[in-house]
């Protein structure tokens, strides 16, 4: 489990775009570096982030090694009805983590 800050407005107007902010604590090791002994440090990055509002996918992103450690992401979404925003990300070690936050349409 890594530490994640997921921030979306608690209440959003129906059909209006709102911003989702996501900050993930992750080394995002590029695989290009070598350690003090000259051995290659294996690549270890988050490679995919998927955001769903209930069952509907609203955002998907593939990540590549050029993204810095502790990536910060902002994207927008719209909601027609209240639901749960679910963010799932997967890293190179196959670790999958899910964060959720409720969104209420007013």
């Amino acid at each position: 489990m890594v530490r994640v800050l997921l921030n979306a407005p608690k209440q959003v107007p129906k059909g209006q775009p709102f911003n989702v902010k996501l900050l993930i604590s992750h080394p995002m090791e590029s695989g290009q570096r070598r350690d003090a002994m000259g051995m290659a440090i294996p690549r270890h990055i988050i490679n995919q982030i998927v955001c769903k509002l209930d069952e509907e996918e609203v955002f998907r992103m593939n990540l590549f090694p050029a993204i810095a450690a502790n990536p910060f992401l902002v994207f927008s979404a719209t909601a027609e009805q209240s639901g749960t925003l679910t963010i799932t990300f997967t890293d190179d070690n196959g670790v999958e983590q899910t964060e959720t936050t409720p969104v209420e349409v007013v």
């Binding site: 530490r3 800050l5 921030n7 902010k21 900050l23 604590s25 502790n70 910060f72 902002v74």
Partner: peptide, 17 residues
């Protein structure tokens, strides 16, 4: 701007810890 926005400031990952 990164420091001004608590949602974007990576330091808050440590603060939550």
């Amino acid at each position: 701007a990164m420091q001004d926005d608590d949602d974007a400031n990576p330091g808050f990952l440590w603060v939550r810890e």
